[in-house]
Write a protein that binds this DNA or RNA. Structure first.
Lengths: 192, 192
DNA sequence: ACCTGAACACCGTTCAAGT
DNA sequence: ACCTGAACACCGTTCAAGT
């Protein structure tokens, strides 16, 4: 007769995520995750296929959270205001989960890569917003521009690579405005 | 009487860098570096303090190479042309050394972080170029904007995160032009 | 079905011992 | 001064054995 499982996939993912932010990606070891769950390391293999599979689960959950924040950021306002809100929500997620964000966006082995659908869902709000200010044929390229800009600031901020000072988050918003100006987007003052 | 050293710091760094690109950051183990040099692992500790110290050496050498490419990119042309050339050189370095680039720009423990001076030297060509198109008080912020943009494209390209297609390098150059347009920079056609 | 302990092939690092 | 082998405390993963 079957036993009651002592741990669940969700519990494994939660323990791994906790470890990720407190000890970094290298600190997420099968043995330490198991230790925190009061179980032996081999037990984890009944719930995940490997360490990479575990990290893939953590990444997928993180992407869905990022997506939720992006969706929430587009609820109101002009396209320009929405782009600023999207940038804020993006940076906020990464600042709250720096190690997770680095894991999501960094290079990784194929086995660790999240489904394309989950990644696509996270970028849908941006594509939709950009679709309101440029013709269809330019949406992908301009969305990539905004994503690269915001990801660039975000990843350099959380990696503490802006070592000359300044105010990087403010510069990020300046950059969004510069791009909007370059695109010839004129905002209706009432909607901002 | 002293022995002739069988390995040098340079040899250790070269072996580590080779391993970094062929097997990834996790593949750079003290034991494998030593194996490639025909020496035992503990011998490495006569040339580096720790694995983090070894990686710091690799990062520092990489930053100097990146700097050389950035310096070379600013030899001629208008500021706008120079910014495009800087972006190209930056992406070219990262494409040729993706694992090294990720190591340089990613988050890392304090012990692995390169000297601020070396990092500053790599960004000097960009700051100098931006200084030609914006007033002194805006140089830092606008330089951060260009850096974030180019780093954003570069890191997402080498991490294979642009999964919706398009032509990211072309979009990067479009973005540079959008920023220049947003800044109101009008290029002299003869210099481009 | 789920969990365990033992085992295997790895790590980074330390250290006494050699030359 | 530089290198070694042995050792310590770790890894991910497999597997026979238990319930």
């Amino acid at each position: 007769m079957p036993h009651n499982p002592r741990i669940s996939l969700d519990a494994v993912l939660a323990a791994a995520r906790d470890l990720l932010e407190t000890r970094g990606a290298e600190g997420v070891t099968m043995r330490e995750v198991a230790r925190r769950l009061g179980v032996s390391a081999p037990s984890l293999y009944f719930h995940v296929e490997s360490r990479d599979d575990l990290l893939r689960g953590v990444i997928t959950a993180g992407l869905r959270e990022l997506e939720a924040g992006q969706v929430a950021a587009t609820t109101a306002g002009s396209p320009g205001a929405a782009l600023h809100a999207l940038a804020d929500a993006y940076l906020a997620f990464a600042s709250a989960n720096p190690a997770l964000y680095s894991l999501i966006m960094g290079p990784c082995p194929e086995e660790r890569m999240a489904d394309g659908e989950v990644a696509a869902a996270a970028s849908a709000p941006l594509l939709r917003t950009v679709g309101e200010i440029v013709p269809p044929g330019r949406v992908l390229a301009i969305s990539q521009v905004f994503w690269a800009l915001v990801h660039g600031f975000t990843s350099l901020i959380i990696a503490e690579q802006f070592r000359l000072g300044g105010d990087p988050p403010a510069a990020m918003h300046e950059a969004v405005d510069l791009l909007l100006a370059g695109l010839g987007v004129v905002e209706d003052p009432r909607s901002r």
